[in-house]
Design a protein around this nucleic acid. Structure first.
Lengths: 346, 346
DNA sequence: TTGTAGGCGTTATCAT
DNA sequence: ATGATAACGCCTACAA
């Protein structure tokens, strides 16, 4: 069957397409109450559904927001298996849909620019998660749409950044360990890259140690992939090494699960033998056994904040704040950190 | 700056827009090698990026695939926090992107039809997860695009169904328990609705019991929401009730985690006091402690299969198989089922 | 093989 | 307040 168009509606209502277009786009005030009524009636009678492709072509607005998610190493799949990202997506989608926007999720292949997709689909805005090469951001700047960066320390006012104070997080986590009487504190972390989230957490770790006059021992830092698998590996290594390490700050919850399981595979229990504190507070943290003590951040709120920002800019309400929004964090005490300063030696 | 259009490319190459359009759409054979070369050169020199909105308007094809994900009870957020769905999405996206399609993820509000979005965006196809009212599917049939239903027992050749044999899964799970010497076997499950996934698993459970001449005791079935929270609740209830139940078949891994933790909160250990077998084999099953014995299905493969089917239909390769594709399942033995028939009473 | 031109459904400008 | 009508960028008969 043929599609019902704005023209059909106009005819049925006995008005021009322009009038219909007005009421469709919330400019009812440009139309008399009489015609408004007729148009609305025609719309519902004909069950008219606008064609966004045509709208986008004519207006350059698509009501589409692009969301970029990091990929697995092999560039094949989205890192959506990491609950961190799915939580973020949840927040974004819910906010967008309530405001009439849709969400186009994709990964972006290495070395490729996101410009293509942006142009192809006339994206109205984008949320970028993960960290990319500088050239990627340069490309992004060529297109004139609002963009929110999640977890990025890029210093560029072209983008809005929404993140947490990762250095503080690392500091709080480590201090929590210290306050519980730990002295030999290890670090399990992803690759420490300049200006990356991981580096900040690492710096926080060092600051806490320093503040407590503890020696920073490079042998206690395990640097690898941000994944459950590497955590497992690190856990085994820690167990194998033996020695005095009594606690570890692990820079992501998924890794922390790996560490705990790795230790367990080697016969060490958390927190009895070694304490562990994670980072992110993904929903599993309270499900995993033992419940993971970790640095909490409200992930879904990040997603919502990102979407809200885009919507505000697109609605013309906000055009200024292209700075950084920091979201609050805090240590959540659960079951994986043992208090050392009350008897019962290791 | 002004957008580079197909016209610009045509001028630059000294040919007509039709020729350019041909090579853009893989009909190079309609063009001489000479012009082809000129066109390709012009495209890359001008850095031409086609406008999908215009393309969609003119051709009625959008290269967009809609993916519908169930929502939370309050209709506010996607059920993406359930790893089952994020895994599925991973599979779908990876396959789609490799074939030049993009993915539009959304939930669909209760009572609302998906027709709107389909029309608005000129979707080329859709993947529907979850179970909806019949009217929802009726709506869907009005639009003439290929649609894949995940986990649906709808009997309608208008749709392609990709799922597993849930009845068999329930049977295998329960039989596994029986083979390990369990006799009083409980069931923790979502709401048992006619023709739903959950009902099939429930029927498999009953069949296994019957086959083993075991009594089906309705008091041993705990029916609630498919969620970690309800699992927790059920676990507590099971512990509180005491009695002879030595094992439970839980119809989803996330629920199983809840059951295990609920039992634990009441001082019961899995599998020492009670055995548990789950369903789905989400990636967490091997991370959770104790590692969850469960019915394995390759979730990512489902997503890929769904996407593959759509692509094939859209490419005109396949137009026939609108039946059901069943994917293999099997019991994965891990640590949550105890063998009863070798000493050591409960 | 190549080019012309009408049309896709909407927006928005410009008269009326 | 309302109505023609020219874009928007692309596809695709149809003609050459």
């Amino acid at each position: 069957m043929k599609r019902t168009t704005i023209k059909d509606v106009a005819e049925r209502a006995g008005v021009s397409t322009a009038a219909v277009s007005y009421v469709l786009n919330g400019r009812e005030h440009k139309v008399s109450g009489d015609t408004l009524a007729k148009i609305q009636e025609a719309i519902s009678e004909l069950n008219y559904i606008p064609d966004y492709s045509a709208r986008s072509l004519a207006s350059k607005r698509s009501s589409l927001i692009g969301v970029v998610i990091p990929q697995t190493e092999d560039q094949k799949r989205l890192l959506l298996e990491n609950p961190f990202y799915s939580d973020l997506i949840c927040g974004i989608e819910s906010e967008l849909r309530q405001h009439g926007y849709h969400m186009l999720i994709s990964g972006v292949d290495k070395g490729q620019s996101y410009l293509d997709l942006t142009m192809q689909r006339n994206l109205d805005g984008a949320v970028i998660m993960g960290i990319y090469q500088e050239s990627f951001y340069d490309e992004l700047k060529k297109v004139d749409i609002p963009i929110v960066l999640i977890d990025s320390y890029i210093n560029d006012d072209h983008f809005k950044k929404i993140r947490i104070d990762d250095e503080l997080g690392g500091y709080l986590a480590t201090r929590h360990l210290i306050e519980n009487g730990h002295v030999n504190i290890g670090l399990v972390t992803g690759m420490i890259r300049k200006d990356g989230v991981v580096e900040k957490r690492y710096l926080g770790y060092k600051r806490a140690l320093q503040e407590a006059n503890l020696f920073y021992d490079h042998d206690l830092v395990f640097e690898g992939q941000v994944s459950y698998e590497y955590g497992l590996e690190a856990g085994k290594q820690i167990a194998a090494r033996g020695g005095g390490m009594t606690a570890a700050f692990v820079t992501s919850d998924m890794m922390a699960f790996g560490v705990i399981n790795g230790l367990r595979q080697q016969g060490l229990q958390v927190p009895d033998d070694i304490s562990v504190i994670g980072f992110d507070d993904i929903s599993l943290a309270g499900i995993f056994h033992p419940n993971l003590t970790t640095v909490h951040q409200d992930i879904k709120a990040r997603g919502i904040a990102a979407a809200k920002h885009l919507i505000e800019v697109l609605d013309g309400k906000e055009n200024l704040d292209q700075g950084v929004t920091l979201q609050p964090i805090s240590v959540i005490e659960r079951e994986t950190v043992r208090r050392m300063n009350e008897g019962k030696g290791v």
